[in-house]
């Protein structure tokens, strides 16, 4: 029980730290990667809360699909900025 609680505390700290870094890191690409890591940590948190349904959805949607959308948007924005500079 205490071991479980210790793990939960560690997980809670990791969640808060990755969330904080997501908002505070200066580079946008790093922020997106940190956000994906945050989503995967959330997946573990859902398992600790014995909610396997949500864990499945969070892993596939929260971390996977949202991360892909964000990275794709980042790539498109950077490409457009570069093209604008070139012209």
């Amino acid at each position: 029980m205490t071991l479980g609680l210790a793990f939960d505390l560690l997980l809670a700290c990791a969640l808060l730290w990755s969330a904080w870094r997501t908002l505070s890191t200066p580079r946008l690409d790093r922020a997106i990667i940190l956000f994906i890591a945050f989503g995967l940590l959330m997946t573990i948190a859902w398992i600790r809360l014995s909610a396997p349904d949500i864990a499945l959805a969070e892993a596939a949607i929260g971390a996977g699909l949202t991360g892909a959308l964000l990275l794709d948007a980042y790539g498109a924005l950077r490409q457009r900025k570069r093209r604008r500079k070139a012209s």
């Binding site: 396997p52 349904d53 499945l56 959805a57 596939a60 949607i61 996977g64 699909l65």
Partner: peptide
């Protein structure tokens, strides 16, 4: 655990 949402994702 599972269902339409996870399958769709």
């Amino acid at each position: 655990p599972g269902g339409a949402f996870q399958a769709g994702a």
